[in-house]
Design a protein around this nucleic acid. Structure first.
Lengths: 247, 247
DNA sequence: TTTCTGCATTGACGTGGATCAAACCGCGGA
DNA sequence: TCCGCGGTTTGATCCACGTCAATGCAGAAA
């Protein structure tokens, strides 16, 4: 699969190509044939490195591209006039950022790296252009947007109907599942975000997040050490999620 | 603009055409040229009438088409295993329904008519096909999906950070604004949904919705009579939305 | 017209999570 | 090594909204 690298072509350039990317099955090029991949390789103009706590884009920035995360971890948030803010998502490798900007040609939220990260810059006009001939890409892109909508509905349900313990259980299971899909352990991971960011995402105060983690630990569901989480009882957490309401 | 109708072509058929539709500037054909409109006219296979309380589609239904609302009013909701449900949106004429199904090829929520309604059925494969040549349509569709994502983020913020009065104020202003865009009065309208549905949408119980409406009435912001709402002080409601938090 | 039925309103009371406040901990820098 | 600081944990108290319950009201059916 890995071809010989001619000295005249920089490693850096080759690494940009989707066709060479280990994340392509998680990302927009999912399921593309070889010739299609060649066309898509032209898509990604460049990559950008984002340092921890630096923004990838901010609310109001003109929209020009969407971004595929190669490495790292991001959050997106929106700020209200009065200073309150809401984290709308946490994104990890292989996920797409920036689709919020298409509708108004300006970004409608902030995207901030939670650790040193790298993204592929996908100029949007070029994406639309390639999608016109590569129908699999067109379809994949639509699916990615649709899944974002469905994800948002899930979060609305969480925010609208769940109690604190359910929210945290759902959050942990979601993290676990996404780390697993990326080849990491389902039981053990490192949270990149603060309690406050988790709380904002889940519509809770940081104290409640902390207390609930402590309670989960007492009850033997997880073990917490600062940002390091080990899940001890996945089925237990699942039951918490479904049953709690019947009380 | 209006062409002569040959007797051999049924009125019904003509009425289906986007090019003849009064809502086209609110809908997917926004900004299309005449020749482009002709191509898009082929898109809409048929129209479907949905009676009040009947579903347009249900969770789990195979995804085949998206729907443009011609007349009427819908809600979408998701059900949790334990019976709880969350209303994820209310949709009115000119808005698009069904994009939740693209990602998984099955619908991920229920869409139910809140009054007798009519929708244009847009077969999705055909939409993708036409979008490959009509770039304005392609772009419009991407914008519609993006706006749905941004709308969802707004609702998350509401659910995650606002208190009851702010939620209701935001809800009323949003309704007012959308009715206005459709040529109705900004001050006076008829709610199609019950207090329980409003509550579900806003993450509140129906009693809280009712109480808050009553309080708004006492304070002179609105006058309520069952489902009939008259807004008396739009700037006041706006202030409620922005200021409340500073207290 | 009366009755029925599904919403809506209003009141009394309980509680989950917010708020306020005080340690505590781990890490980076001097 | 120690210090400072951002983040976390834990406790005590409060209150906005949920819950439970009764009553009111309007439109549909008879």
């Amino acid at each position: 699969m890995q071809t010989q690298t001619p000295a005249s072509i920089s490693i850096n350039h080759l690494k940009v190509a989707c066709s060479e990317c280990s994340l392509r099955e998680l990302c927009l090029p999912y399921g593309l044939s070889e010739p299609e991949l060649d066309r898509v390789d032209q898509l990604v103009g460049l990559r950008r490195k984002i340092r921890r706590h630096a923004p990838l884009y901010r609310f109001g920035d003109p929209f020009e591209a969407i971004y595929a995360i190669r490495t790292g971890f991001f959050k997106t948030d929106v700020l209200l006039d009065d200073g309150r803010s809401q984290v709308t998502g946490f994104q990890m490798a292989g996920e797409i950022l920036g689709m919020d900007g298409i509708g108004t040609e300006r970004h409608s939220c902030n995207a901030v790296a939670l650790e040193d990260s790298e993204v592929c810059v996908i100029p949007f006009l070029k994406l639309e252009e390639v999608a016109r001939t590569v129908t699999t890409l067109q379809h994949n892109f639509h699916k990615v947007m649709s899944r974002e909508i469905v994800r948002d509905h899930g979060l609305m349900t969480l925010l609208g109907t769940m109690r604190a313990e359910e929210r945290l259980a759902a959050f942990l299971l979601n993290m676990s599942q996404r780390f697993t899909a990326r080849g990491y352990s389902p039981q053990e991971f490192h949270l990149r975000m603060t309690r406050e960011e988790i709380g904002s995402y889940l519509g809770l105060k940081l104290e409640t997040v902390s207390r609930t983690f402590s309670k989960f630990q007492e009850d033997g569901y997880i073990s917490v050490q600062q940002k390091h989480i080990r899940i001890l009882d996945i089925p237990g957490l699942r039951k918490l999620l479904n049953h709690q309401a019947c009380a």
